[in-house]
Write a protein that binds this DNA or RNA. Structure first.
Lengths: 350, 350
DNA sequence: TCGATTAATGTAAGCGCTTGCAAGATTACG
DNA sequence: CGTAATCTTGCAAGCGCTTACATTAATCGA
């Protein structure tokens, strides 16, 4: 079932069929109708591979993320996809599970499919890969890693700043012993986050007691990390998580152990995923504007004014502290409950 | 940058390059080495579109889901993808957001890309589409909709049975006023679920009081539905949700209103998504073996014994009641708390 | 050492589609 | 009614790759 079959049935040449299918060039109305009818009768579906090969319009973007399961990544994907669809583009996703090797093969796959733009929203990254992508002419967006180049746009979130706000806020509530939960700290960008926490903590309060533990991304990882902390003997009054997704597991573990949050222990996340409002207690976190990021990616990847793509710039996205129910003043002594958890205080989000 | 460039650089013909790249036919060791070197030096990446066109091995599956955000769908995708990768396949996802029209275009897209197999895991479905897919030679798996045909495998979950267990269980706990929360009930397969609930409820307990409300999939939808129920004046003692994802929102709304779950009101979900264990109280639900479903899909779509594909069968997957913390005996009178929530009772899951 | 095998590589015909160019069909206008 | 200008449509050359088949090189037994 190919162009030729359709052409025959409509008594035209393949060129004409192609023209009506792509709505390009001029075709007499009657002919067009005949072609369309033939297409429908034959239930013809163009072979996109052939189309791309032949140099047809390439309306496909690629996106590579570390962990689709983490709503943070999924949200970015969803807005990107929505934007892309609106402009007639498709987007292909690939998931790396934080495995650098997997990243490499995913990039190759995307290049192999000849996507017209690639978003790399991952926390792991080999420098050689960055170079390879920089060398290619492909428009690329990196999130959180690498540096801007000719064909590369760079989006970074001001993690430092967000972490600072969180620590500052907790410190203001009287917390002096904090624990940090991260994951995959062997991967540089993530280790970087841990380091950021430590630096901020040290800078802000030299006499702060901190501990860090690492695990896997996700609730289960958070749960494990929480266990480790709780059995460590450090007895922090606040647990700072590298992201909300892990904080979910922390909350659960504390609940299971009958440790009241926030009365006995405060917990913070990072990202402000939708679920952060749907757990109890609702999570205090730093909001990362994922929709904005999705839009930015789309902007950078799809040439709006044909031929006049702006590239090579770097965008720094700021975070916003969102105080909900999972944080409260530090307990001086490890006592029992202290009444109802307090309601949201600072920023109110829709 | 194409095969020919590589061929030139390695002083061989394109055929030879192709052979070493696909590891097919016999090539002298020395030549192979030269080719590989040329490939690396040139950073050559084969054009997959051309490869498919030329009749190379098609190792791509497609999967269409209604709502990637719902962990239920995501889980299936993840196991399918893992299985597929293990066999050297890629899988393309498309998201429909429960929009039938979107389903149609997604199917066309997949067919256009000439995937070698397609999994349609959606809750909306036009009969015409089923027919169209049945007519195509493409191996297809439908989840929860349609019927088995020559090239179509059908996976159904025994929703009826699962719902029966839930209602039965709640009835056993003394619940006599139940509310059902669904979503997109204009879509047949989902309306079907609502109907199932009603039938089961009626059959099991003719004097049961029920109400149903519909909304959008997800926590927000669950929250809205919960509000509707709570202001309806029906005062159910148990809320049965069509899936866990919505139940999350219900739990949150009840928490916000200081309605104790399960002491004042019991809540059940369906699916047993990972998060069900990570909310408080942990969700009582019916477990749908998503991994098994993912494996089944992979089995059906990838010919294991080349040329000998089993098709046209129908698989009925059974559910399992998982009792956690969100259900308890019904309150006789609308009183206050009753101590700690009880621990898991029945099936213990890893 | 010399055909006869067998291994290694090259040749070239597509796969289904797009598109520049040219030919044929229409229309306009004097 | 003739010719130039304008529309429509067809022709055919690829796009980059795979693969059946042809060709050449290497190997072997007698």
């Amino acid at each position: 079932m190919n162009l030729e079959d359709v052409a025959k049935r409509a008594n035209v040449s393949t060129a004409t069929v192609s023209r009506v299918l792509n709505n390009v060039g001029r075709v007499k109305h009657a002919t067009k109708a005949r072609v369309i009818q033939a297409v429908e009768e034959l239930k013809y579906t163009p072979n996109l591979n052939a189309r791309m090969l032949a140099g047809g319009p390439n309306r496909t973007l690629g996106m590579i993320v570390s962990n689709l399961e983490n709503p943070f990544f999924l949200d970015i994907f969803r807005t990107l996809e929505a934007d892309a669809h609106r402009r007639g583009y498709e987007v292909l996703v690939a998931n790396t599970d934080y495995r650098p090797q997997h990243l490499v093969s995913s990039v190759r796959l995307m290049i192999g499919r000849r996507v017209s733009g690639l978003a790399v929203v991952v926390s792991e990254m080999k420098p050689s890969l960055i170079r390879e992508l920089a060398d290619s002419r492909l428009p690329v967006v990196f999130y959180d890693v690498g540096a801007a180049r000719a064909n590369i746009t760079n989006i970074k979130v001001n993690y430092q700043n967000g972490m600072q706000r969180i620590v500052e806020y907790l410190y203001g509530l009287g917390h002096r012993r904090m624990a940090f939960i991260g994951h995959h700290t062997t991967l540089e960008p993530l280790n970087d986050r841990k380091r950021t926490f430590l630096e901020v903590a040290q800078a802000y309060a030299p006499r702060l007691k901190v501990m860090t533990v690492g695990s896997a991304d996700g609730p289960v990882g958070g749960q494990n990390a929480a266990r480790e902390i709780l059995t460590s003997g450090v007895h922090p009054t606040a647990i700072v998580c590298v992201n909300d997704f892990m904080a979910l597991g922390v909350l659960r573990e504390l609940h299971a152990r009958r440790i009241a949050v926030p009365d006995e222990l405060s917990v913070t996340g990072f990202d402000d995923i939708g679920l952060a409002q749907f757990v109890s207690p609702a999570l205090t976190t730093a909001h990362i504007p994922r929709e904005e990021i999705g839009h930015l990616i789309c902007e950078a990847l799809i040439p709006s004014h044909p031929g006049h793509r702006e590239h090579g710039h770097e965008v720094l996205v700021d975070t916003e502290l969102v105080v909900r129910e999972s944080t409260a003043p530090a307990q001086t002594r490890p006592a029992g409950r202290r009444g109802q958890p307090r309601r949201p205080v600072a920023v109110a989000r829709k």
